[in-house]
Design a protein around this nucleic acid. Structure first.
Lengths: 211, 211
DNA sequence: CGGCATTTGTAACCATTGTTACTGAGTACT
DNA sequence: AGTACTCAGTAACAATGGTTACAAATGCCG
């Protein structure tokens, strides 16, 4: 575990802190598609991603979803920190996008490290910074942009996260992520295909050029 | 200044920290309607509100606006902290909603206090917590709710912030805050009037019962 | 009071998104 | 091959919100 920590967090944390994390953290592997947390769950630990990616979503009472952002290696979830601090319940849902390796750190340590390690403080603040900005960008997207543009952004982000030009999702799944309906997404995807931006296939979409 | 600090932050910070704030902070009064910060501005200090309220907005390239939330006394702006830490430009626009009194604290002190004062750390984390949740709620509102419900939420929030049952805004101003159009807002307000929830007048709206 | 600017009310129309319903294509299983 | 199931394409329609245009009301100021 210590080696994986060093690979992913060595540039961020000093030796002492890395060792502490290795001591109290528990290593976990999560398969793609696994729901790691739902709204209302109590938060017991804070995840430090080693590899893979986790999809963070918002959900309303009716179970409608909206994709917020992805966590990648070297990142953590500010929402979780948020909840740890306040002893409140989770405001988000987290699902593994790929097979994911991570280290869970118990909540109690957070405060201690925040007091003792400058690098940890910076990391925590940096995380808040990133996440707040990401939520703001989603907000921009939902508030100011039309569905065709949001879909384009979505596809671009998928390509970035998956590091491949093929997106393995059904139209229905995309519709859930964007909080839209399958028919609407099919319609817009068809337009993108006619523009030559993508190629549609059953269960996957080949990205040609998203301009 | 020290007295006002104690009144508003005495329950949060210890004597030492209050004194430090009083030493390095500068007292400011801002008239209602004054734009305190625009998107792209560099952030030089962090505001601690004494009285009044500040409206925090998001803005896109075309100048379209969206109300995020209000800051009240005893609160600060996480967005600002965000920017201070990262030395980045402001992501938001801030306009005084009422006449507002506040203390500006230079950025440099933030990090020092975060290391030295547990109460300051908690305050900062608490602020992040609150703001992140507020942005999430706005996102919920924009993503999951229709305009009539959003308008209702807006009116409720206005009543809460202004502590009065009369809202002094034109329909156009409300439309800007919700990123909608005047005609749509007039239409929906009329419906609310017909339901007996509000009374419409020129330049102000009297709230009867928002259920 | 009379004129002017601002604000509000209303109607007609359009665009986007969502809904329903049905069809056919692709896949999996037997 | 036959059956069943999921996924995608499409059309018709509804609902919401945005736009344009104009009239009426309100309040301000000389």
């Amino acid at each position: 575990m210590i080696q994986e920590l060093k690979d992913n967090y060595g540039h961020l944390f000093e030796e002492d802190l890395l060792n502490e994390i290795a001591q109290v953290g528990t290593y976990k592997e999560v398969p793609a598609g696994f729901t790691m947390m739902s709204i209302g769950d109590y938060v017991r630990g804070m995840p430090l991603l080693i590899s893979g990616a986790i999809k963070i979503m918002r959900e309303d009472k009716e179970g409608d979803e909206l994709l917020l952002y992805y966590l990648e290696s070297g990142e953590t979830c500010s929402m979780t920190m948020n909840c740890c601090m306040g002893q409140t319940k989770s405001e988000i849902k987290a699902v593994a996008e790929h097979d994911t390796k991570l280290i869970m750190v118990p909540v109690q340590k957070m405060e201690e490290w925040t007091a003792n390690y400058k690098t940890w403080r910076n990391f925590v603040f940096q995380s808040y910074h990133t996440r707040l900005n990401e939520v703001l960008h989603i907000l921009d997207s939902v508030a100011f942009e039309k569905m065709d543009q949001r879909l384009l952004n979505y596809l671009k982000e998928k390509v970035r996260i998956n590091k491949t030009m093929t997106i393995h999702n059904t139209h229905q799944e995309i519709a859930y992520d964007l909080h839209s309906s399958r028919v609407v997404i099919s319609r817009l995807l068809k337009k993108l295909e006619q523009l030559g931006s993508i190629e549609l296939h059953r269960n996957h979409i080949k990205i040609i050029n998203l301009a």
